[in-house]
């Protein structure tokens, strides 16, 4: 009994460390410019400035930005889940010449940081005539070596009896993947989808570099308008950040129940 209380106490302590900055963000979002700039231990504003919300939305075309962000993130997430499921399965379960080499090539693409591939990728996208289009925002991110690796591990963890039995029943690879193996690793696919969504939704530099007009801009670009050369509008920046983060918190809360339930038999295997 005492052990349980200690456990909850421990978790609550940890939780306060992870949530404090959030509370701070929300508090600051509704302070006046001056109060936000004043360092103090006071978490919440002395007077809630609800009109900050209005000011935030007026500072940039957030409507368009949100629409673009959701559209881009949605397409990217769907594609990443599909491509990593397909490639992960091929690497884990199919027997073909060049499998090891192909997998090495996939892993090689993560060895160089994004900051380095930015210019070459920009050249390619530009060459394809995609500057300032959705294609530039979406296509390069439709697959991801990390997630292929993750899904491969999950497929490798499936007991091979499943596959043998399917084979005896005359079930081919595509059918097995779609109807049996895929659903069995659903928690991993949900995880991949969540991370892919976050990655796309939180990206700033790439969208800024490959787009020129407000028509194609995304929410993270919207956050930068509050930092000028002469200062940051702290309260509005935090207000905008809170608004931008909200959908991802909801998404996570919805997705997280898939992580733990029904994960039997999907242990990650190296």
């Amino acid at each position: 009994m005492i052990r349980r209380y200690v456990m909850y106490l421990f978790l609550l302590c940890g939780a306060s460390i992870t949530t404090f900055p959030f509370a701070w963000m929300i508090g600051t979002a509704f302070k006046t410019y001056k109060e936000a700039a004043t360092p103090s231990l006071q978490l919440f504003p002395s007077e809630w400035q609800w009109h900050n919300l209005v000011e935030t939305f007026q500072a940039a075309p957030f409507g368009t930005y949100f629409k673009n962000s959701f559209f881009v993130a949605f397409v990217v997430t769907t594609s990443v889940v599909l491509t990593s499921m397909m490639a992960g399965y091929a690497f884990a379960r199919l027997d073909f010449p060049g499998r090891k080499q192909a997998f090495a090539v996939v892993l090689a693409t993560v060895m160089v940081p994004f900051e380095v591939t930015l210019i070459p990728n920009f050249l390619i996208v530009n060459r394809l005539g995609w500057y300032d289009t959705y294609a530039a925002l979406i296509v390069p991110w439709c697959t991801n070596a990390f997630y292929i690796f993750l899904v491969r591990q999950a497929f490798m963890g499936l007991p091979s009896d499943y596959f043998d039995a399917a084979k005896i029943d005359g079930c081919g690879h595509l059918r097995f993947l779609v109807w049996i193996a895929g659903p069995l690793v659903k928690p991993i696919l949900v995880t991949v989808g969540l991370f892919a969504f976050l990655g796309s939704y939180n990206s700033l530099v790439w969208p800024l570099v490959v787009t020129g007009t407000d028509r194609m801009r995304v929410v993270q670009v919207g956050l930068t308008v509050f930092s000028g050369a002469e200062g940051v509008q702290f309260n509005l920046l935090m207000c905008a950040s809170a608004i931008v983060i909200a959908p991802t918190v909801v998404l996570y809360f919805v997705a997280q129940k898939y992580f733990s339930e029904g994960l039997v038999g999907t242990g990650l295997k190296g």
Binding site: L118, F122, R127, L208
Partner: peptide, 9 residues
């Protein structure tokens, strides 16, 4: 950064 990339392109 944008100008540098564009110069390359």
């Amino acid at each position: 950064r944008k100008v540098s990339a564009s110069i390359q392109a």
